[in-house]
Amino acid sequence: MIRPILLAALLALPVAAQAADARRDAVIADYAAQARKADPAFAGFSAQRGETLFRAKWTGGDARTPSCTTCHTDNPKAAGQNAKTGRTIEPVAVSVNPKRFVDMAEVEKQFGRDCKNVIGRDCTVVEKGDYVTFMAGQ
């Protein structure tokens, strides 16, 4: 009786290991440290707030990109399309694209561009941490 459970656990292991990535944990930990520094009462990132941010419609940025979903579609697991260039965008959801959010310099570069285009300002540290947390669970 024990064996099937063990086998199932073994089978599940590589899948979990694929999505989890110490480099992504480090990115989130870095944002968390910044958030605590800015606000000692910081209580952690929220996937739910990240999803709200992802789906929100904004008016302050480029009129062609009023939301994250403009290019990434409503489904983070789906491929998207750059609204200005037509270029295909790989999915943002970590479960289908484990290369996401593993390099802080890359993550910062992309937020730097996209936040200005979509929201019309830089994202806050909490917004960035929430977004990565949401996508890590998708």
Binding site: Q81, N82, A83, K84, T85, G86, R87
Partner: peptide, 11 residues
């Protein structure tokens, strides 16, 4: 819709 802009050569 797959073209979007003239510079999207691979479309």
């Amino acid at each position: 819709p797959k073209v979007v802009t003239r510079s999207n050569c691979p479309a």
